[in-house]
């Protein structure tokens, strides 16, 4: 009985680790190529071990492209967009969750309905709007249109309804808090877990966004990482070491953010789906 069980357990873990191997292999391969010279890629059999060229490859990436600049651009856009989205989504989510006001139900239903519209529908006209406003090639085009997210408002409203107790709101009112003080002093600290989750999702989403920046970032000095990376790939297609080093550098921040908060992140993803 015991042996049979452990045999079953070995098979089960073997399959799971095989899956892990496939999941991690592209990362492994990326790092192998980033730490070797390009010639290693063309060797037969292919080199499957880490090399010592990472530092040189990084310097070459920095020299042949505006990688540092686009890295800073991406950090700036991701951070600013995330902070603004958190602020506007929590304000609206809090208002929808804890107050009654005329037209509330209709306004909230309308907000939900807008989530059904695919963003590609307004790709062309929004480009023209950006052009008309003179925002082409500026960070405004990446940050402002998407600043108040319907998804974020929905997510925070659902959380706030249960998490913020009415007694606490009443106590705050008795202490003479106005609506903004209720939001700032009472709601925000309670909403911290959902804000952390939504913040992570937003940060990662903005970081790796590709189509919209590709269209509106016409100024090379304002390129984001993903655009720079695609550019690197088309310019140095055969220089794999260079392109892979760029990919590693562009991916590392995402992986770090994910690994730091993986527990909350996974719990948040699972929670959202189970509830909906």
């Amino acid at each position: 009985m015991d042996r049979k069980l452990s045999f079953k357990s070995i098979i089960l873990h073997f399959i799971l680790f095989l899956g892990i191997f496939i999941s991690l292999f592209p990362f492994f391969w990326m790092v192998v190529m980033a730490t070797n010279e390009t010639s290693a890629v063309y060797s037969v059999p292919p080199k499957l071990t880490f090399g010592t060229e990472l530092f040189n490859n990084i310097i070459e990436v920095f020299e042949s492209t505006n990688f540092i600049g686009s890295f800073m651009n991406t950090v700036f856009v991701s951070v600013v967009a995330t902070v603004l989205k958190l602020f506007f989504a929590s304000l609206a989510g809090f208002a929808f969750a804890k107050f009654h006001f005329p037209g509330k139900n209709f306004l909230f239903f309308f907000l939900l309905a807008t989530m059904m519209i695919p963003s590609q529908l307004s790709l062309v006209p929004n480009f023209i709007v950006m052009e008309t406003l003179g925002w082409l090639g500026t960070f405004k085009a990446l940050i402002i249109p998407d600043m108040a997210s319907a998804f974020g408002i929905f997510l925070i409203k659902q959380y706030a309804e249960e998490a913020i107790h009415n007694e606490l709101m009443d106590a705050g009112r008795m202490d003479g808090c106005n609506t903004f003080r209720l939001y700032w002093n009472i709601a925000l600290p309670i909403l911290r877990p959902i804000l952390a989750f939504f913040g992570m999702v937003t940060f990662m989403g903005v970081w790796q966004d590709y189509l919209w920046p590709l269209i509106v970032m016409t100024d090379t000095s304002k390129f984001t990482l993903m655009i720079e990376l695609a550019q690197l790939k088309s310019l140095y297609a055969t220089d794999y070491a260079l392109v892979m080093t760029g990919s590693v550098l562009a991916t590392i921040p995402l992986i770090i953010v994910f690994l730091l908060f993986s527990k909350q992140f996974i719990a948040g993803i699972a929670d959202g789906a189970v509830k909906s």
């Binding site: 899956g19 990376l229 953010v257 996974i266």
Partner: peptide
């Protein structure tokens, strides 16, 4: 009977947070 559940969850999820541009380059 599965052990290391948290490790499996995190590692299987990892590809999902990786930038599509970088993934396309690797593939």
């Amino acid at each position: 009977i599965t052990r290391f559940k948290d490790f499996f969850k995190v590692t299987y999820f990892l590809p999902n947070v990786t930038a599509a541009v970088a993934v396309a380059i690797v593939f």
